[in-house]
């Protein structure tokens, strides 16, 4: 783990980190990575990936319209809205 990686991960997650935070995060994240990498010691060559610990199948729903029609509730937490649109800072160059 190095500073460049920490900065890249932070940028991809849209997190603002100060230089001081970066130098603190490098060893912390490095430790976490090392901890997880212990799993690499196991031989998993003939082991199927485990999608879930519960022995259940993916549940499907029927194609019925059962939801929606509540623009007011959907917009209730929006910092800004207008005529039932979300309003955000302009995002096109």
């Amino acid at each position: 783990m190095d500073e460049a990686t920490v900065r890249k991960v932070a940028r991809l997650a849209r997190l603002k980190v100060t230089d001081e935070e970066v130098s603190r995060l490098v060893p912390q994240l490095g430790n976490i990575m090392q901890f997880v990498e212990q799993l690499g010691e196991l031989d998993t060559d003939n082991v199927e990936p485990l999608a879930s610990v519960a022995n259940i199948d993916l549940r499907l729903r029927e194609d019925d319209v059962t939801d929606g029609g509540m623009a007011d509730q959907v917009l209730a937490n929006a910092p800004e809205s207008m005529e039932d649109f979300f309003v955000v800072p302009k995002v096109v160059e």
Partner: peptide
């Protein structure tokens, strides 16, 4: 729709 804002419909 607006000079400094974008409008979003989900």
């Amino acid at each position: 729709q607006h000079p400094t804002k974008s409008y979003v419909d989900l």
